[in-house]
Computed example of a mutant assay.
Amino acid sequence: MKHGLKKTDGNVSTVMQFVLLGFSELSDLQGFLFGVFSIIYMIIVTGNSLIIILTRLDPALQKPMYFFLANFSFLEICYVSVTLPRILVNLWTQDRSISLVACATQMCFLLMLGATECFLLAVMAYDRYVAICHPLHYSVVMNQKMCVQLAVGSWLIGIPVQIGQTAQIFSLRFCNSNQINHFCCDIPPILKLACGDTFAHEVSVYIVAIFFVTVPFTLILISYGKIVSTILKLPTASGRAKAFSTCSSHLLVVLLFFGSATITYLRPKSKHSAETDKLLSLFYMIITPMFNPMIYSLRNKDVIAALRKLLFKK
C-alpha cells in the first residue's frame, strides 16, 4: 500500500495525505532550483516591502494610488508566501508529502488571495478612472474612508466563497493515487485525483472563476475604455503621454495576471495538462509578483524619487 493511502471497504484506497511531485522530474537540478527560488523569494519580499515602506514614509506618496499599491505589494508577499516556502522545503528535504489539512489550507489561502488580487486590481483601475476622468472630484470621491472601504472589501469579498469552494472540493473522496503533479495544492490537479464523477464540482469551479475573474476584468475594461476616451481628448501630446504613463504599469500587471489565470481556470478540461498547468501557475503565482515591484517602480517617477530620497538621505 502506498504511503498516505488507507484501505477502506471494497478494497479501495482512500488518500490520507498527498505528495506534491513539484519538479521531481528534474532530479539533477534540485539544488539549482532551490537557489533560484530562494533568490526569487528574497526579491519578491524585498521589492514589495520596499514599496510599502516608501508609501508610508514619503509625503509625496500619501495618495490613494499609492495606498492601493501598498496593499497590492503586501498582498503579493502573502500570495507567494503560501507556496514558495513549501516549494523550498520540498526541494531542500526531498520530502514532498503534505497532509490533507495542510493541502486544503494552502488551496483556501491561494483562492482567497487570488480573489483579493482580482478585485484589488479592479479598485486600482477605478482609482485611475476617477483621477483621469474626474480630476476635480478626485479628492472628494477617493477620500480616506472610501479608500479604506474599497481595500477592505477587496480583502474580504472572496473569503466566504473560497472557504466554501475548498470545503466542497475536499469533501470528495480521493482514491488510488495521492500524487499531485504540481508544486502546490491548486484546483485542477486536485480534481484529477478525485473518485467518481466530478462534473458538478467542475461547474462550480467555472462559476466561481467566472465571477472572480470575469467581473473584475470587465470593470477594469470599462474603466480603461473611459480612461482612453478621456486621454485622447486631451489637447496636448505631453498631457496624453503623462496620463498614459500613470496607467501603463497597472495595465501591464493586469494583462499578466488575468491572462495566465484565465487560461488556468477557464479553459476546457480536455486542454489541461500537468506541465502546462505548472508553467502557468509558476507564472502568475511566482514570476509576476517578482516583476510587479520593478514594473511599478521603474515606470513611476514618484516612486523612483522617493527611493532616491530614502537611499541618499543624510
Score class of each variant (00 low, 15 high):
Ser260Lys: 14
Thr262Ser: 15
Phe67Trp: 04
Ser99Gln: 04
Lys271Ser: 15
Gln106Lys: 03
Leu100Tyr: 15
Lys226Asn: 13
Asn292Ala: 05
His134Gln: 12
Arg267Cys: 09
Ser245Arg: 10
Val19Thr: 09
Cys103Ile: 02
Ile44Cys: 03
Met107His: 00
Gln106Trp: 03
Pro188Leu: 01
Gln149Pro: 00
Ile163His: 02
Ser177Ile: 06
Lys145Ile: 10
Ile227Pro: 11
Leu256Gln: 10
Ile39Phe: 13
Cys195Met: 09
Gln30Lys: 12
Lys2Arg: 12
Tyr79Asp: 06
Leu33Pro: 12
Met42Gln: 03
Phe170Cys: 07
Cys247Met: 06
Leu156Met: 07
Leu5Lys: 02
Ile39Asn: 05
Asn48Ala: 07
Asn143Ser: 08
Thr198Val: 15
Phe312Ala: 06
Ala194Thr: 05
Asn11Ala: 15
Val82Gly: 01
Gln106Ser: 06
Lys301Asp: 12
Phe67Leu: 06
Phe72Gly: 07
Leu5Ala: 04
Ser248Met: 11
Pro293Thr: 00
Tyr206Ile: 11
Leu54Met: 03
Ala122Asp: 01
Phe72Pro: 08
Ser281Phe: 11
Ala209Gly: 14
Lys314Glu: 13
Glu25Thr: 07
Cys118Val: 09
Asn176Gln: 15
Leu280Arg: 04
Ile163Thr: 01
Ala274Ile: 02
Leu69Thr: 10
Pro289Phe: 03
Tyr126Arg: 10
Lys309Arg: 13
Ala60His: 05
Ser13Met: 15
Thr166Gly: 03
Cys247Pro: 09
Phe119Arg: 06
Phe211Leu: 14
Lys145Gln: 11
Tyr126Lys: 12
Leu266His: 03
Ala104His: 01
Gly196Gln: 08
His182Phe: 13
Leu120Asp: 02
Thr288Pro: 00
Gly196Thr: 09
Thr46Glu: 02
Leu150Gln: 06
Gln106Met: 09
Ile287Leu: 14
Ile190Thr: 13
Tyr41Thr: 02
Ser154Glu: 01
Ile40Gly: 05
Lys271Tyr: 15
Thr198Tyr: 06
Gly47Val: 02
Arg267His: 09
Lys278Phe: 03
Trp155Pro: 02
Tyr296Pro: 00
Ser27Phe: 06
Ile304Lys: 12
Ala60Cys: 04
Thr262Leu: 01
Val36Leu: 13
Pro64Asn: 12
Leu29Trp: 13
Cys133Asn: 14
Tyr41Val: 01
Phe257Arg: 01
Tyr224Ile: 05
Ala102Gln: 07
Ala237Ser: 11
Asp127Tyr: 07
Leu150Asp: 00
Met146Phe: 11
Ile40His: 03
Cys133Tyr: 04
Gln94Gly: 05
Ile87Gln: 09
Tyr296Thr: 05
Phe37Gln: 04
Pro189Val: 03
Met16Gln: 15
His134Arg: 11
Leu120Asn: 02
Ile263Pro: 00
Gly158Asp: 08
Gln162Met: 15
Val253Arg: 01
Gly22Glu: 10
Thr218Pro: 05
Gly35Arg: 05
Thr14Cys: 06
Ile190Trp: 04
Lys301Phe: 11
Leu84Asn: 03
Ile40Thr: 08
Ala305Asn: 13
Asp28Gly: 03
Gln94Tyr: 07
Thr262Asp: 01
Lys314Met: 07
Pro235Asp: 07
Ser171Leu: 05
Ala115Asp: 00
Gly259Glu: 07
Gln144Ile: 04
Ala115Leu: 00
Gln165Met: 15
Asn292Trp: 06
Cys147Ala: 14
Tyr126Ala: 14
Thr246Arg: 14
